[in-house]
Write a protein that binds this DNA or RNA. Structure first.
Lengths: 245, 245
DNA sequence: CAGTGGTCTAGACCACACT
DNA sequence: GTGTGGTCTAGACCACTGC
């Protein structure tokens, strides 16, 4: 009888390896968000494979929203600074169908040490330094969202309330331009909760009103969690919109 | 100066046309859910294109979850009857991480006429006949979900409470096997609401408890809406799980 | 016009499932 | 072994962008 050992590494097609190489370059900031990566022909030459193989690798990265293809122009590193990506992860929509125009109001930005829960979510150790931010987002003067945000202090060193208040655009564009941190994906856990007095005050609803609780973990390249958010949405006149495929 | 008319029909690549042809066959039930479609070679011959072009068409349909590729076996029409697709559209998960084992309890199944709201969502006219179903889903004896469901009577003729109670599996597998209706995608609008006495009673929570309200429209082939659901989830020990990419 | 991504082809070969 | 989907290649040509 023959001795056939279990394959340690499963078969990995060439384009998967190319994908990994491109990903490594993204992670190493060889090409920055918004910039063009080399053309398919150049990459094919660099990796010594055919254009079709590079193409398949890029296709998959584009499907995961890591790259953006633009015919005639090139392939670009995805960025949260583009107009149509500004609110890529925001699923809240007014019932009326109009568009939300959210304005930030930052309440706090303080350095502290993480508890066990936040530490675990961020792959840190309880007691590691973190930054905690509170903010309210309003549409036409009406508060809609109250959010608590936790960030690892190592990555977001020196972040202050003043810096936040000086920034007009969305949070993830801020992280990208100020801290070279691009968010790739996020996971959310949604519940219905009752407003306590603090939440009621922030969102100008009555105590005991129903609010949507949204806990988010956001990840950069390499599946690294770098932001925790706990949001409460007032869904009396807006809803969380989701598509199932 | 030259007179250049706007292109009426934009350029449409071959594989898009093949995609449309395959879609038409699916919609016409030429191949039923769970069945294999012809091999790539056969389809290439049938449509007189290369295998690569058929491949790209199938790739995109598989990405939309309309087809399922299985190496060495063939390409199959997606079905809700497969084990791992049973709860493809259910995003509710226990906080504990365990799996939910939901048991159905159907409360009502009655014929009625649609109001303007439901009619509009189902592309019907107010007054058209519809079927309305109430059900409760429980996990380990605890009611978790209360749902109202509306179906167009034309498509689901003769549906009775007894038929529902005789069915053990998930709803969309039932529609598929009994009414030749396969659900392709769905849209959900989520809010937080307070339990009124009726909801409190169904879900065994106190009046004024916070509940997740989930309004779903589900579509078959050809973007045709064929089911409306309004669910209320008790999220005290479970949450709605969502991934953002 | 040159350069980029996008389409289409034809053919060779690999991995996997079934028999 | 045969048939299926999966990978990879090389080359031709099309569509779009910007100089």
């Amino acid at each position: 009888m023959s001795l056939i050992s279990e394959p340690i590494a499963a078969f990995s097609p060439l384009y998967e390896q190319i994908k990994a190489l491109i990903l490594a370059s993204l992670q190493a900031s060889e090409w920055l968000p918004g910039e063009a990566i080399p053309s398919e022909m150049e990459l094919a030459a660099r990796y010594a494979v055919s254009q079709g193989t590079v193409r398949k690798a890029i296709d998959e990265l584009a499907a995961q929203n890591l790259l953006v293809r633009r015919q005639g122009k090139g392939t670009f590193v995805a960025t949260h600074q583009e107009d149509d990506w500004q609110y890529r992860f925001l699923r809240l929509e007014p019932d009326s169908g109009k568009k939300l125009h959210l304005k930030n109001q930052f309440l706090a930005c303080e350095n502290m040490v993480s508890d066990a829960h936040i530490a675990q979510l961020l792959n840190l150790i309880a007691g590691d330094p973190i930054i905690r931010i509170d903010r309210i987002q309003s549409d036409a003067g009406r508060p809609i969202v109250f959010e608590e945000i936790w960030l690892p202090e190592v990555r977001f060193k020196g972040l202050t309330l003043d810096a936040l208040n000086a920034w007009a655009g969305p949070m993830y564009a801020f992280y990208e331009s100020q801290y070279a941190t691009h968010m790739v994906r996020a996971e959310e856990k949604i519940k219905a909760v009752l407003a306590n007095s603090r939440l009621a005050n922030h969102l100008q609803v009555t105590e005991g009103a129903a609010l949507l609780s949204v806990e988010r973990v956001a990840f950069t390249y390499g599946n690294k969690p770098v932001e925790i958010r706990h949001a409460r949405y007032d869904t009396s006149e807006q809803h969380y919109d989701n598509k199932l495929n």
